[in-house]
């Protein structure tokens, strides 16, 4: 066996060395920020690579951030905008995906292409008119404005993924339901919707991550302190307190940690969703 192993271009050790090194490269900036956010100012500069110790441990940054900014509100804004968008996208996206993948009607192909334009063309390019539209609808500085735009932004990919998924549902299932006299609405809500649950993880990630992390639309549609999302809130807070390292590090940590925790919990489903071939 030894001969065989040696003739490979790089052995198992080499592969682990490369992957391990890259993993460290990917993680240390994040680790560095989180570790230093729990230190007092002097320790941040004196020994930035060290973990917080009993001596250097300090929560001063977090206290300042929570005192000087509406961090809880930003978090709430981000959560509500993201989750409401997700719920709407899943419901009306699944409805449209079902119609496009199940029924043969005139213009089906054309409509499918029409709905797919948004996968290739970034919605930001329409920002001038979107802002005008939101002003006309009297929705500036509301979370509703963000939800409407984000729903439009997320629908194309969601419909694409969900219809791919729905095409795999065996036709017998629907035929059987139709024989039982269930209406088309009944079939969708009682049979199809429960069956696409596994696709929700994939659609959820592709919908939520860009929205949660977006800076552009909060900046132009809802920049008021009452409606700022966490990304915008942190951006503005850091712009204001750029020299207060404790606050900066703490605010970054508070923006990173929720996402990291959720990611670590759901990473398995997420990556399985991406690698299952739903997205090609």
């Amino acid at each position: 066996m030894s001969m065989q192993k040696m003739r490979k271009p790089l052995g198992a050790a080499g592969v682990h060395a490369i992957l391990g090194a890259y993993t460290v490269l990917a993680l240390w900036p994040i680790f560095l920020v989180i570790a230093n956010s729990f230190k007092e100012r002097k320790a941040i500069f004196r020994d930035p690579l060290a973990l917080p110790t009993i001596d250097s441990f300090s929560l001063i940054g977090f206290e300042k951030v929570l005192g000087k900014s509406s961090f809880g509100l930003y978090l709430f804004n981000s959560l509500s905008v993201t989750l409401i968008t997700l719920a709407i996208v899943l419901l009306i996206g699944a409805m449209a995906a079902w119609a496009l993948s199940e029924y043969k009607f005139k213009g089906n192909t054309l409509l499918s292409i029409y709905m797919a334009i948004g996968i290739m063309v970034p919605i930001r390019l329409g920002s001038v008119s979107i802002l005008q539209l939101i002003v006309d609808l009297d929705l500036t500085n509301t979370r509703t404005a963000l939800v409407l735009v984000y729903v439009a932004q997320s629908l194309p990919l969601a419909i694409f993924i969900l219809s791919e998924f729905m095409r795999q549902i065996p036709g017998d299932l629907k035929e059987a339901a139709r024989c039982d006299g269930i209406s088309e609405y009944g079939i969708f809500f009682h049979i199809i919707l429960p069956l696409v649950r596994p696709a929700i993880a994939t659609v959820g990630v592709f919908t939520m991550v860009p929205i949660w992390n977006d800076l552009w639309f909060p900046l132009i549609l809802a920049p008021s302190p009452e409606t700022a999302t966490i990304t915008l809130g942190v951006q503005q807070f850091i712009g204001q307190y750029v020299t207060d390292w404790n606050s900066v590090l703490a605010s970054l940590t508070m923006a990173i940690l929720p996402v990291l925790i959720i990611y670590l919990i759901f990473s398995r489903q997420l990556i399985r969703g991406i690698t299952s071939g739903a997205v090609k």
Binding site: G118, L133, I159
Partner: peptide, 18 residues
């Protein structure tokens, strides 16, 4: 009915602005 909500929102907030 299945198509209307998605097509409306998408058209109004994405295609029309573009």
């Amino acid at each position: 009915v299945f198509l209307a909500p998605a097509v409306l929102i998408y058209t109004l907030f994405m295609i029309y602005p573009l």
